[in-house]
Protein backbone atom coordinates (compact mmCIF):
# COMPACT_ATOMS: atom_id res chain seq x y z
CA UNK A 1 0.00 0.00 0.00
CA UNK A 2 1.27 3.46 -0.84
CA UNK A 3 -0.59 5.17 2.02
CA UNK A 4 0.64 3.01 4.91
CA UNK A 5 3.74 1.44 6.44
CA UNK A 6 6.75 2.78 8.30
CA UNK A 7 8.43 4.24 5.21
CA UNK A 8 5.26 6.14 4.24
CA UNK A 9 4.83 7.71 7.67
CA UNK A 10 8.51 8.52 8.20
CA UNK A 11 8.52 10.24 4.83
CA UNK A 12 5.49 12.32 5.88
CA UNK A 13 7.22 13.36 9.12
CA UNK A 14 10.27 14.32 7.06
CA UNK A 15 8.06 16.57 4.93
CA UNK A 16 6.90 18.19 8.18
CA UNK A 17 10.53 18.84 9.05
CA UNK A 18 11.23 15.97 11.44
CA UNK A 19 13.74 13.14 11.19
CA UNK A 20 12.40 10.58 13.67
CA UNK A 21 14.99 9.17 16.07
CA UNK A 22 14.74 6.54 18.78
CA UNK A 23 12.98 7.81 21.86
CA UNK A 24 12.11 6.50 25.27
CA UNK A 25 8.89 7.58 26.94
CA UNK A 26 9.37 8.26 30.63
CA UNK A 27 6.59 6.83 32.77
CA UNK A 28 4.95 9.31 35.12
CA UNK A 29 2.44 9.76 37.91
CA UNK A 30 0.19 12.63 38.95
CA UNK A 31 -0.54 13.21 42.63
CA UNK A 32 -4.28 13.26 43.34
CA UNK A 33 -4.76 16.34 45.50
CA UNK A 34 -8.32 15.28 46.30
CA UNK A 35 -6.81 12.67 48.59
CA UNK A 36 -3.28 13.64 49.52
CA UNK A 37 -0.45 16.14 49.04
CA UNK A 38 3.07 15.91 47.66
CA UNK A 39 4.54 16.42 51.13
CA UNK A 40 2.53 13.47 52.49
CA UNK A 41 2.91 11.08 49.57
CA UNK A 42 6.47 11.57 48.31
CA UNK A 43 8.28 10.45 51.51
CA UNK A 44 5.96 7.46 51.69
CA UNK A 45 6.76 6.38 48.12
CA UNK A 46 10.46 7.03 48.73
CA UNK A 47 10.38 4.59 51.66
CA UNK A 48 9.11 1.96 49.24
CA UNK A 49 12.19 2.53 47.05
CA UNK A 50 10.35 4.55 44.37
CA UNK A 51 12.47 7.35 42.92
CA UNK A 52 10.60 10.28 41.37
CA UNK A 53 11.55 13.52 39.65
CA UNK A 54 9.26 16.54 39.30
CA UNK A 55 7.97 17.19 35.79
CA UNK A 56 8.91 20.84 35.33
CA UNK A 57 5.91 21.77 33.18
CA UNK A 58 3.01 20.27 35.21
CA UNK A 59 1.85 21.15 38.73
CA UNK A 60 1.38 17.68 40.21
CA UNK A 61 3.31 15.39 37.84
CA UNK A 62 6.44 13.32 38.57
CA UNK A 63 8.58 11.18 36.28
CA UNK A 64 9.23 7.70 37.67
CA UNK A 65 13.01 7.26 37.77
CA UNK A 66 13.09 3.90 39.53
CA UNK A 67 10.66 1.36 40.92
CA UNK A 68 11.02 -2.33 41.69
CA UNK A 69 7.36 -3.19 41.29
CA UNK A 70 4.18 -2.26 39.41
CA UNK A 71 3.01 1.16 40.53
CA UNK A 72 -0.55 0.15 39.70
CA UNK A 73 -0.76 -2.55 42.36
CA UNK A 74 0.28 -0.91 45.64
CA UNK A 75 -1.96 0.42 48.41
CA UNK A 76 -1.18 4.08 47.68
CA UNK A 77 -2.43 3.67 44.09
CA UNK A 78 -5.45 1.59 45.04
CA UNK A 79 -6.49 4.24 47.56
CA UNK A 80 -6.33 6.86 44.81
CA UNK A 81 -3.36 8.89 46.08
CA UNK A 82 -1.91 9.09 42.57
CA UNK A 83 -2.81 8.36 38.97
CA UNK A 84 -0.47 6.72 36.45
CA UNK A 85 -0.51 9.37 33.74
CA UNK A 86 2.07 10.04 31.07
CA UNK A 87 3.57 13.55 31.18
CA UNK A 88 2.12 14.94 27.92
CA UNK A 89 -1.32 13.61 28.86
CA UNK A 90 -1.25 15.83 31.96
CA UNK A 91 -0.98 19.00 29.87
CA UNK A 92 -4.47 19.55 28.35
CA UNK A 93 -6.24 19.88 31.71
CA UNK A 94 -3.54 22.24 33.01
CA UNK A 95 -4.08 24.40 29.93
CA UNK A 96 -7.87 24.34 30.33
CA UNK A 97 -7.32 25.40 33.95
CA UNK A 98 -10.89 24.87 35.24
CA UNK A 99 -12.16 26.90 38.21
CA UNK A 100 -14.17 25.41 41.10
CA UNK A 101 -17.19 27.39 39.94
CA UNK A 102 -17.09 26.13 36.33
CA UNK A 103 -19.37 23.74 34.48
CA UNK A 104 -17.05 21.63 32.33
CA UNK A 105 -17.79 19.23 29.49
CA UNK A 106 -15.37 16.31 29.19
CA UNK A 107 -16.03 14.87 25.74
CA UNK A 108 -14.30 11.46 25.53
CA UNK A 109 -13.56 10.61 29.12
CA UNK A 110 -12.27 7.01 29.52
CA UNK A 111 -10.16 5.82 31.19
CA UNK A 112 -10.50 8.91 33.37
CA UNK A 113 -7.00 10.33 33.79
CA UNK A 114 -8.02 13.76 32.60
CA UNK A 115 -11.44 13.63 34.29
CA UNK A 116 -9.87 12.93 37.69
CA UNK A 117 -7.36 15.70 37.00
CA UNK A 118 -10.20 18.13 36.20
CA UNK A 119 -11.95 17.18 39.45
CA UNK A 120 -8.73 17.67 41.42
CA UNK A 121 -8.12 21.14 39.96
CA UNK A 122 -11.74 22.04 40.72
CA UNK A 123 -11.39 20.62 44.24
CA UNK A 124 -14.48 18.46 43.61
CA UNK A 125 -16.59 21.60 43.22
CA UNK A 126 -18.43 22.99 40.20
CA UNK A 127 -19.73 20.42 37.74
CA UNK A 128 -18.12 18.03 35.25
CA UNK A 129 -20.26 16.28 32.65
CA UNK A 130 -18.37 13.40 31.03
CA UNK A 131 -19.20 11.34 27.95
CA UNK A 132 -17.74 8.02 26.89
CA UNK A 133 -19.10 6.21 23.86
CA UNK A 134 -17.35 2.84 24.16
CA UNK A 135 -19.16 0.67 26.74
CA UNK A 136 -16.10 -1.52 27.40
CA UNK A 137 -14.16 1.56 28.53
CA UNK A 138 -16.84 2.72 30.98
CA UNK A 139 -15.76 0.21 33.67
CA UNK A 140 -12.23 1.66 33.83
CA UNK A 141 -13.61 5.19 33.91
CA UNK A 142 -15.97 4.47 36.79
CA UNK A 143 -13.28 2.58 38.74
CA UNK A 144 -10.86 5.48 38.40
CA UNK A 145 -13.40 8.12 39.39
CA UNK A 146 -14.34 6.06 42.43
CA UNK A 147 -10.74 5.31 43.38
CA UNK A 148 -9.73 8.98 43.12
CA UNK A 149 -12.72 10.14 45.17
CA UNK A 150 -14.33 12.21 42.42
CA UNK A 151 -17.74 13.52 43.51
CA UNK A 152 -18.50 16.46 41.17
CA UNK A 153 -18.86 14.39 37.98
CA UNK A 154 -21.78 12.90 36.06
CA UNK A 155 -20.91 10.30 33.41
CA UNK A 156 -23.02 9.36 30.40
CA UNK A 157 -22.39 6.26 28.34
CA UNK A 158 -23.01 7.97 25.01
CA UNK A 159 -21.51 9.97 22.17
CA UNK A 160 -20.34 13.44 23.23
CA UNK A 161 -22.58 14.89 20.52
CA UNK A 162 -25.47 13.97 22.90
CA UNK A 163 -24.36 16.85 25.15
CA UNK A 164 -26.72 19.12 23.21
CA UNK A 165 -29.69 17.29 24.75
CA UNK A 166 -28.75 18.52 28.24
CA UNK A 167 -29.45 22.15 27.33
CA UNK A 168 -26.34 23.34 29.18
CA UNK A 169 -23.90 26.00 27.97
CA UNK A 170 -20.48 25.06 29.30
CA UNK A 171 -17.81 27.40 30.68
CA UNK A 172 -15.02 25.12 29.53
CA UNK A 173 -14.67 21.99 27.41
CA UNK A 174 -12.02 19.32 27.25
CA UNK A 175 -11.96 17.46 23.96
CA UNK A 176 -9.31 14.79 24.21
CA UNK A 177 -10.34 13.31 20.91
CA UNK A 178 -10.35 9.63 19.96
CA UNK A 179 -7.41 9.35 17.55
CA UNK A 180 -5.11 7.01 15.68
CA UNK A 181 -2.45 7.15 18.41
CA UNK A 182 1.28 7.27 17.71
CA UNK A 183 4.26 5.01 17.15
CA UNK A 184 5.87 5.80 20.52
CA UNK A 185 2.85 4.56 22.39
CA UNK A 186 1.96 1.42 20.48
CA UNK A 187 4.09 -1.45 19.24
CA UNK A 188 3.70 -2.07 15.50
CA UNK A 189 1.82 1.23 15.10
CA UNK A 190 3.31 1.77 11.62
CA UNK A 191 2.04 -1.61 10.45
CA UNK A 192 -1.47 -1.12 11.85
CA UNK A 193 -2.33 2.35 10.53
CA UNK A 194 -2.99 3.85 7.12
CA UNK A 195 -4.04 7.24 5.79
CA UNK A 196 -7.67 6.17 5.26
CA UNK A 197 -8.03 5.33 8.96
CA UNK A 198 -6.46 8.65 9.91
CA UNK A 199 -8.87 10.55 7.67
CA UNK A 200 -11.76 8.63 9.21
CA UNK A 201 -10.56 9.68 12.70
CA UNK A 202 -10.34 13.24 11.48
CA UNK A 203 -13.99 13.21 10.34
CA UNK A 204 -15.14 11.95 13.77
CA UNK A 205 -13.00 14.57 15.53
CA UNK A 206 -14.52 17.40 13.47
CA UNK A 207 -18.03 16.17 14.26
CA UNK A 208 -17.35 16.21 18.01
CA UNK A 209 -15.56 19.56 17.73
CA UNK A 210 -18.55 21.16 15.99
CA UNK A 211 -20.97 19.94 18.69
CA UNK A 212 -18.61 20.99 21.46
CA UNK A 213 -18.32 24.55 20.14
CA UNK A 214 -22.15 24.67 19.86
CA UNK A 215 -22.53 24.03 23.60
CA UNK A 216 -19.65 26.29 24.69
CA UNK A 217 -20.46 29.72 26.15
CA UNK A 218 -19.21 32.77 24.23
CA UNK A 219 -15.66 33.55 25.43
CA UNK A 220 -15.51 30.04 26.86
CA UNK A 221 -12.42 27.96 26.08
CA UNK A 222 -12.07 24.50 24.63
CA UNK A 223 -8.85 22.50 24.79
CA UNK A 224 -8.49 20.08 21.90
CA UNK A 225 -5.87 17.33 22.18
CA UNK A 226 -4.86 14.09 20.52
CA UNK A 227 -2.05 11.63 21.02
CA UNK A 228 -1.57 11.58 17.24
CA UNK A 229 1.28 13.08 15.21
CA UNK A 230 -0.75 13.15 12.01
CA UNK A 231 -1.63 16.67 10.75
CA UNK A 232 -5.07 15.53 9.54
CA UNK A 233 -6.03 14.97 13.20
CA UNK A 234 -4.26 18.09 14.47
CA UNK A 235 -3.30 21.25 12.56
CA UNK A 236 -5.67 20.52 9.65
CA UNK A 237 -8.58 20.05 12.07
CA UNK A 238 -7.74 23.35 13.74
CA UNK A 239 -7.61 25.05 10.32
CA UNK A 240 -11.03 23.53 9.60
CA UNK A 241 -12.31 24.93 12.93
CA UNK A 242 -10.97 28.40 12.07
CA UNK A 243 -12.70 28.22 8.68
CA UNK A 244 -16.02 26.83 9.88
CA UNK A 245 -16.59 27.64 13.56
CA UNK A 246 -16.71 30.89 15.57
CA UNK A 247 -13.32 30.46 17.25
CA UNK A 248 -9.82 31.83 17.52
CA UNK A 249 -6.74 30.03 18.77
CA UNK A 250 -4.97 31.21 21.92
CA UNK A 251 -1.26 30.81 22.55
CA UNK A 252 -0.17 27.98 24.84
CA UNK A 253 2.69 29.09 27.03
CA UNK A 254 4.67 25.98 27.84
CA UNK A 255 8.44 25.50 28.02
CA UNK A 256 8.12 22.19 26.17
CA UNK A 257 6.94 21.10 22.72
CA UNK A 258 7.13 22.74 19.28
CA UNK A 259 4.66 25.24 17.91
CA UNK A 260 1.94 24.00 15.54
CA UNK A 261 3.04 23.55 11.93
CA UNK A 262 1.61 26.05 9.43
CA UNK A 263 3.01 24.54 6.27
CA UNK A 264 1.50 21.07 5.83
CA UNK A 265 2.44 19.20 2.65
CA UNK A 266 2.69 22.52 0.78
CA UNK A 267 -0.62 23.79 2.17
CA UNK A 268 -0.22 27.13 4.00
CA UNK A 269 -2.33 27.32 7.19
CA UNK A 270 -3.50 30.21 9.36
CA UNK A 271 -0.69 31.70 11.48
CA UNK A 272 -2.81 31.26 14.64
CA UNK A 273 -1.98 27.55 14.40
CA UNK A 274 1.53 28.40 15.60
CA UNK A 275 -0.18 28.97 18.99
CA UNK A 276 -0.79 25.21 19.30
CA UNK A 277 1.76 22.74 20.72
CA UNK A 278 3.11 19.59 19.10
CA UNK A 279 5.16 16.98 20.98
CA UNK A 280 7.60 14.87 18.98
CA UNK A 281 8.61 11.88 21.16
CA UNK A 282 12.31 12.09 20.28
CA UNK A 283 12.41 15.74 21.37
CA UNK A 284 10.26 15.62 24.53
CA UNK A 285 10.64 12.01 25.79
CA UNK A 286 6.86 11.90 25.95
CA UNK A 287 4.34 10.20 23.72
CA UNK A 288 3.44 11.98 20.48
CA UNK A 289 0.91 14.66 21.33
CA UNK A 290 -0.88 17.74 20.06
CA UNK A 291 -2.82 20.37 21.99
CA UNK A 292 -4.71 23.52 21.01
CA UNK A 293 -6.74 26.08 22.97
CA UNK A 294 -9.78 27.42 21.11
CA UNK A 295 -11.84 30.34 22.38
CA UNK A 296 -15.40 30.86 21.17
CA UNK A 297 -16.02 34.29 19.66
Amino acid sequence: MDNAGKKFFLNRYKQLGEEIQDSQIKSAIRINTLKTTASELLPRLEKLGIKLEKIPYTTQGYFVKKTNFSLGAITEHLLGYYYLQEAAAQIPVEILNPEPTDTVLDCCAAPGGKTTQLAALMNNQGKIISYELKPHRITSLIMNLERCGVTNTTVFSADATDAKKLGIQFDKILLDAPCSGNYALEKDWFEKRDLNGIKQSSRIQRKILRTAIDVLKPNGSLVYSTCSLEPEENELNIQWALDNLPVHIEKINLPVGDEGITNIFEQKLNDQIKNCKRFWPHKTNTQGFFVARLVKI
Binding site: T151, T154, F156, K165
Partner: peptide, 10 residues
Amino acid sequence: KHRPVYAGRC
Protein backbone atom coordinates in the same frame (compact mmCIF):
# COMPACT_ATOMS: atom_id res chain seq x y z
CA LYS B 1 -33.30 12.23 34.25
CA HIS B 2 -30.81 11.70 31.43
CA ARG B 3 -29.78 8.30 32.86
CA PRO B 4 -26.10 8.68 33.72
CA VAL B 5 -23.90 5.72 34.70
CA TYR B 6 -22.03 7.63 37.42
CA ALA B 7 -23.32 10.66 39.31
CA GLY B 8 -21.85 12.38 42.32
CA ARG B 9 -20.47 10.47 45.28
CA CYS B 10 -20.13 6.73 44.78
